[in-house]
């Protein structure tokens, strides 16, 4: 079987592995695997892409649809044995499925081509993950992505401030500025007629090298209707709600912790999709300015108008920022 393994005998590969790995992690022998089938590529295997050897580590994991730590067998962490850089190797895995929100069902697809296209579009931008698309020996288009070290926007938010009031007065303005940058990045996609497709707070990572947030994982696409970007905007609204509330404020949580606050809420105050999430945060945290709360209420059950474009959200958030 012909591998794209250049001129690297096993001995040389082992020498390279020793250079980057601690002694107790060095495999006894090197197994070079073809990349054609990601299920056959395991921990400690070496794969070659464009002549570069990568030592494969663990599959990446992701919490999704209530399932924590679901393994993504087609996404593997790996080390470039020439440079020592940690990379994410993403195999071609196309799936088509129906997503469900309440009683609403809509068609979605996981498309390697979409992610490859966007990787090209955002090349060099500090607000998106970076990487390249590389054909393997079987002609599959694998994505080789830079590994981003850092916390997600959600994790970062929860660590700020002693309590909500301290968080809101001392940390939130800067966080909102960062969020505005995050929304600007999505505007760039939308203006180039691309959707992110899977907007959520754990797809926004604060790169510890640059200190800036980067969007990751843009291989999802959804069948849109009249509004092409409505679903992306819904995701942005959820993230905004989370960072403003320093976590999701749910009716269940209020029932447990502050039943008096729950009493003050009406059905108009909750999220238009997730009826257990409170959008009218001003009723919970009275120091939240009206303009910011109005933005949140655009995503509530009582909203008479919805955002259709990121620029509309950005304009309103820009105005809300002035009041902080």
């Amino acid at each position: 079987m012909a591998f794209q393994n250049g001129d690297y005998p096993e001995k040389e590969l082992l020498r390279m592995i020793r250079k980057w790995l601690p002694r107790d992690r060095i495999p006894r022998r090197v197994r070079v695997k073809d990349t054609a089938d990601f299920f056959r590529v395991d921990y400690d295997d070496v794969v070659f892409l464009k002549g570069v050897p990568y030592l494969v580590r663990n599959n990446e994991r992701e919490g999704r649809f209530g399932l924590e730590d679901e393994q993504k067998f087609w996404v593997k962490r790996a080390r470039n044995l020439l440079t020592g850089d940690v990379k994410i190797l993403k195999w071609v895995f196309k799936e088509r499925f129906d997503a469900k929100i309440g009683s609403l069902v809509f068609e979605c697809v996981r498309s390697p081509e979409k992610e490859a296209r966007i990787l090209e579009l955002v090349r060099g931008r500090p607000d998106f993950m970076q990487g390249e698309t590389v054909p393997d020996s079987s002609g599959n288009q694998l994505r080789v992505l830079d590994y981003i070290t850092g916390k997600t926007l959600g994790q970062h938010t929860l660590e700020l401030g002693r309590n909500h009031e301290d968080f809101f007065h001392n940390h939130f303005p800067a966080l909102l500025d960062e969020f505005l940058g995050v929304v600007e990045a999505i505007r760039f996609l939308h203006e180039n007629n691309e959707k992110h497709g899977d907007i959520r707070r754990d797809h926004i990572i604060k790169d510890s090298e640059t200190g800036r947030y980067r969007w990751i994982d843009f291989d999802f696409n959804y069948r849109h209707g009249e509004s092409r970007f409505g679903f992306d905007l819904f995701g942005l609204g959820n993230v905004l709600l989370f960072i403003t509330g320093r976590g999701d404020i749910t009716t269940y949580r209020l029932l447990q912790e502050s039943p008096d606050l729950l009493e003050r809420l009406s059905e108009d105050d909750v999220n238009i999709v997730f009826h257990n999430r409170v959008n009218n945060l001003k009723k919970i945290f009275p120091y939240i300015p009206e303009k910011l709360n109005r933005v949140l209420m655009h995503f509530s059950l009582s909203a008479p108008l919805y955002y259709e474009y990121t620029r509309e959200l950005l304009e309103d958030l820009g105005e809300a920022r002035e009041d902080l």
Binding site: I101, S103, L104, G225, G230, I272, E308
Partner: peptide, 15 residues
């Protein structure tokens, strides 16, 4: 359309 559907995917007649 439900409000959720109109919110997520828009409404042609409204537009």
């Amino acid at each position: 359309k439900s409000r959720t559907e109109e919110f997520l995917f828009g409404s042609t007649s409204s537009k």
